[in-house]
């Protein structure tokens, strides 16, 4: 019987078929080849990605994977911050800082935004300057320069403690809590703290008599002394005016006398207002002198 199996053709025909030849020629045209080699694979990959991530769950899953990977790196112990060290703050300020800084330890140093922390620190009234940095060993180092109380300012019922530049530090409950701080009063007095401090320095010889300074009409200062005495200072050169009074006081014990007001508002015409009793006495003596 003859074999039914089709014999293999004796020789392989190396010639391409007409269609494969044409196909090759078409594929050799540059635009089409670029389309097939780059365009179509890119389109397929893009379509696949889009279809895959059209589902919200998968999107969340992918996001979760990415975030987990990110977390696993940034939360390595080398990058963790565990402690906050605060330098240069009083106990009260220290407590305030620990309260307001939005950091929950332990936290990765990649999650800490130092600018935000710095901003938060600077919003504290008692803080003059601050620097925040992450030190090796996982320490969040906060260096603070605190404002120093220089004045106490009475404004109606409120007692505010100011520093030398007039910046508000905190409210005081009672004057007696800060007996060492000089007192100022009057609307806008906190804007003129430098002048006030100069006056207090000038008034050093009568420091035990000075109760405080009052800023009058947002314009000029009154020195309020014990025994209801006042020195009304001019708008210009109040320190020199005060010094004149002090010189007078030294020479003639001016303030020991029964005076209510030493009025220096017009520098060319200083005026004294004497007490009621002394006034009556002066009046009588002058009348008798007339008679």
């Amino acid at each position: 019987m003859w074999t039914l199996i089709k014999p293999k053709s004796a020789k392989h025909d190396p010639a391409p078929s007409r269609w494969s030849y044409r196909f090759m020629r078409i594929m050799l045209s540059p635009v089409l080849r670029r389309l097939v080699v780059y365009g179509i694979p890119a389109a397929i990959v893009t379509a696949g990605v889009v279809i895959y991530f059209a589902d919200l769950d998968r999107r969340d899953m992918a996001k979760g994977v990415v975030i987990d990977a990110y977390r696993s790196v940034i939360e390595r112990p080398e990058f963790m911050v565990n402690v906050m060290a605060i330098n240069g703050a009083s106990a009260a300020l220290d407590a305030d800082i620990r309260e307001i800084l939005p950091v929950d330890f332990p936290v990765s140093q990649f999650d800490i935004e130092l600018d935000v922390l710095h901003g938060a620190l600077m919003e504290l009234d008692a803080v003059k300057q601050a620097s925040v940095q992450i030190r090796t060993g996982g320490v969040l180092q906060v260096d603070v320069m605190e404002r120093q109380p220089a004045l106490i300012w009475r404004m109606g019922e409120n007692l505010d403690i100011l520093d030398a530049s007039g910046a508000f530090i905190r409210a005081a409950v009672a004057r007696t809590d800060y007996p060492n701080l000089p007192l100022i009063a009057g609307e806008g007095a906190n804007m003129q703290t430098a002048k006030a401090l100069e006056l207090f320095v000038a008034a050093e010889p009568i420091a035990d008599r000075v109760r405080g300074l009052v800023y009058v009409g947002e314009r000029r200062w009154d020195v309020v002394l014990t025994q209801d005495q006042r020195i009304l200072l001019p708008e210009h050169k109040p320190v020199q005016a005060l010094e004149r009074v002090l010189v007078l006081n030294q020479a003639q014990d001016l303030l020991e006398r029964d005076l209510r007001v030493v009025d220096l508002r017009l520098p060319n015409r200083p005026t004294l207002r004497v007490g009621q009793a002394s006034g009556d006495e002066i009046l009588q003596s002058s009348q008798t002198a007339v008679e």
């Binding site: 025909d13 190396p14 010639a15 391409p16 007409r18 030849y21 090759m24 020629r25 050799l28 045209s29």
Partner: peptide, 18 residues
């Protein structure tokens, strides 16, 4: 024709140009 096509195809493929 087949022989010519073989040669042409190989040469064009090598040249990478139509």
């Amino acid at each position: 024709e087949r022989a010519i096509r073989t040669a042409l195809q190989a040469a064009q493929k090598l040249a990478n140009i139509k």
